[in-house]
Write a protein that binds this DNA or RNA. Structure first.
Lengths: 233, 233
DNA sequence: CAGTATCCCTTATGATACTG
DNA sequence: CAGTATCATAAGGGATACTG
């Protein structure tokens, strides 16, 4: 597990652990705030549960994270060592968004998008009561096409089935268009103007939805040929 | 080659390429100044040549490096994209030296040590003519025990056979002691004082050798429990 | 110097189903 | 919720020898 490079170089010793498949993504999920096994799974839908379990154990043995039993729940948390990987992972993500721009259709997983969007919402801006925003991903396979984001001031839930509450706003768009907004390759406003994405609902919500579901932290990374116009719309 | 994660996340897209075994070490070698196939091999002695070739091709196709034919030589050089990985790799190395301190015996490869030492020499401080420093790695296997560093103002060569010039100084020590100095876990002066390492030669050379063969760039990274005493001797 | 060509083999991984 | 169990396939990788 993580075959040795037989090198004393610190980069080699670090990579023995970190270059195992999925490992950096597990750490990314933990850095993003996931703490439970099934939360991690939602952010890593293509990773098999046994492999996730294996990676978590390995990372725990290696001192990168800690596994704690809290009542009947199990909680995973980064150790000080693991938390220190944040800067490196952010650099790698910034590098990725700059230099690996072309996404294949297979990269566009609606489950990942919804999971990312849901944890980016600033709940302090959510009104009292329950606000439901439906997403219609027009080109997703049938089972992954409709999503309901259930927003309350205390949290956001992602549902792939109708939770039964009134829908306050609906977002329509293709996976590629929505992902482009998330990654910062396009903005909400330019996409709305072009009609690539639409929002239905009250005027207020049409204004609020792009704020709640704003782009990822990597959106502001300047792109190679375009030093300071990354977010020009 | 670098199976897809099926994620649009920039970290995932970066790691699809970068978490393949050996890849980061190849880039590290290029960042350290190696430009030829056989130079890369010397820094990566446990990597098979076919795998190195495969990785170089993949990195070239991915735009991380450029392969150029210069006369009858082939030169590999990082592209702008590849060069931008420097900061990430340095963070990963710093993380490694902080959190992965325990080295197995198998990590202590004399070929890597000699190669690292040789390219760290500041040739501006080397006197005219030829200066040979011999290394005796007392616990290395017979074939990897004796090394000759041939220093001239224009470059440094590593030899695993007697080049025939007079030896001006000799360094004696175990792999573990020499690597500790290289990584910054110990200093030349403390190791000399303890007698773990010895240098024979003129007084001047006994002073000069620790300067020529100084520690790696990671030596100054502060260690976890020891915030600012990393290099206390 | 700069790689290719083989060749075997382990082991990593994906998919799926199932359990306390 | 939090995982384990099982299985078959693929392929990644190591070692070595050889070539223009």
């Amino acid at each position: 597990m993580g075959a040795s490079y037989h090198q004393f170089c610190p980069v080699a010793k670090a990579m023995e652990l970190l270059d195992e498949r999925w490992t950096m993504l597990v750490i990314r999920e933990l850095l993003s705030g996931s703490r439970h096994f099934n939360d991690l799974r939602r952010g890593l839908p293509r990773m098999s549960p046994s492999l996730l379990s294996k990676r978590l154990n390995h990372l725990a043995r290696s001192g990168v994270l800690e596994r704690r039993q809290e009542g009947r729940e199990v909680v995973y948390e980064l150790s000080p060592a693991g938390s220190e990987l944040q800067a490196a992972i952010e650099l790698l993500g910034a590098w990725g968004v700059r230099w690996i721009g072309e996404l294949g259709d297979a990269d566009l997983d609606p489950r990942v998008l919804m999971w990312d969007l849901h944890r980016n919402v600033d709940t302090a801006t959510v009104p009292e009561g329950i606000t439901v925003v439906r997403f219609d991903i027009v080109d997703a396979p049938p089972r992954l096409r409709r999503w309901w984001m259930v927003l309350t001031p205390t949290g956001v839930d992602v549902c792939d089935a109708d939770p039964g509450h009134e829908v306050a706003a609906t977002v329509n768009g293709s996976m590629r268009d929505l992902v482009s907004i998330w990654r910062g390759d396009r903005t909400w406003s330019s996409s709305l103007r072009r009609g690539a994405v639409t929002i239905t609902g009250s005027t207020q919500l049409q204004h609020q939805v792009p704020i709640w579901f704003g782009p990822s932290r990597f959106a502001t990374v300047p792109r190679p040929g375009d030093p300071d116009a990354a977010l020009a719309s």
